[in-house]
Amino acid sequence: MSAAVVTAEVAYVLRLADDALVLAQRLAGQLTRAPQLEEDVALSNIALDLLGQARPLLTRAGELEGAGRSEDDLAYLREERAFLNCQLVEVPERDFAETIARQLLFSCYQLPLYRVLATSTDEVVAGVAEKGAKEVDYHRDHAVQWTLRLGDGTDESHRRMQAALERLWPYADELFESDDVTRAAAASGLGVDPAGLRAGWDADVDAVLAEATLTRPQPVRRATGGRRGVHTEAMGYLLAEMQHLHRSHPGATW
């Protein structure tokens, strides 16, 4: 196996892990800020599921890399440019509608992705995906229920839900971008080329938006770069919060 293939494998698994890890961190940051107590519980439950998916994936990426890095090393000691999550999961939300909009866009992508990855040639990826698909199905349903409630709710909730979609839509394209890493993963059976998930995602999301009386945005720009380690301004702040304790007190445990 050439070094380039190993690198692509590691990158592919890191992308999966970092999406879950960074979104878990974002959702955990919403704790106590949801509109109702039950929603705080829901968002923290979802964050916990995602964190649980990220951990074995990070461990696996470390094994594939073969440089002795643990899940903690990868989560807490990488620099911003080494994180390969999509930008959608790192964008900070400004209100609850944006939290829900992101959950809708992301879980409608992650659910079919995990369903396919359940047959990955990599046992860890397949195991996480098989289990994760059941969890993400629930996350997606939660996001759909709220999208309907906010979109088809009051004038104010409709306005804010539509605004949330407009803000986050430019980040959606990145989820489906093909590059050398996804093509190598698809060729080896480790992963899938996400471009093939686009049509299903469009149909799924469009149906929800129609029922919620929301309009599909027509963005004039596309945000991309996360898969190559290029992030938004918000990413550094997110990592500072996530990594501060571990870096200040190496080896600290509960």
Binding site: L48, D49, L50, L51, G52, Q53, V128, K131, G132, E135
Partner: peptide, 8 residues
């Protein structure tokens, strides 16, 4: 086997 991935 965990009930949920993140089961604490």
């Amino acid at each position: 086997t965990p009930t949920y991935s993140g089961c604490p």
